[in-house]
Amino acid sequence: MEIPYAVKPRPDTGVYNAKLGMWLFLASEVMLFGGLFSAYILLRVGAPEGTWTQGLLDIRLGTINTVILAFSAVTTLLAWAACKVRDFGKFKMWHGLTILLALVFLGIKSYEYRDKFSHFQIRKADGTYVDGHIAGSKYVDAAGQEREIHHGFRGKTFTEGEKEFTLASVTLNGYEAETLKEINQPERGHKHEHKDITVPAAEIKKIGNYGPAHNTFTAIYFTMTGLHALHILGGVLVIAYFWGPGSKMWHTEPDRFTNRIEVSGLFWHFVDLVWIFLFPILYLT
């Protein structure tokens, strides 16, 4: 059975069906991200004084990712234009470049995530804080045997074989702070001097990394960028399919294939649009 209006536009809508379908899907996506953006606004405006984290994210990495995604939006468009003028070789080149750029974007995002999971904050029993990247942690078992974990933390206790190790101390490469505000909202232009600080387990009231459970900022940061990264991943899988096995259609139905590239390109531009707003609200404000 032939699918109607896969190539020619429908007379009543003026566009072929897949394109209308994609626009309707993007409309629902606007509402999905709109809900998260409004949640961000409410969380940020409602955050008690000094608790909203600012300056945590690396602006340089965010800027590089913005440039990468903006360039990939151009390459996906040029891939479609190459299909339009029947240049399959150029299509392969531009679409291949889009895939490469998307993978670089995801690589940088993964690096940023990894950095947050190795960034710890300790609340000490005296109410002060130590903040920084994990340099190491020391554990001791019942027989007094020590075990050192370099650049890692394995919780308050962990078992290995039959031995149970208990946390003895944690070393962070960071700085000490009297209040949470000093960490979350440092004065503009101020950089904390970093050094190795070892905190004995007895002095630790609370310890945790900057994962989603750390505070409301990291929760909304991971939710929004994680959902966006899933969109990138989904998009790159579709683009890779059209670049690889799906490109067979070019030889039998080039117009329909060109429309597929246009529709996947629309999705890709939407992903770029979302990042255009995510970057300033999370990294710059």
Partner: peptide
Amino acid sequence: VATFLMHIVTEKRFVLVV
């Protein structure tokens, strides 16, 4: 991005209504 890369500027009326 929306106007020039997504071609909204030349898009059909039905899509603009959506």
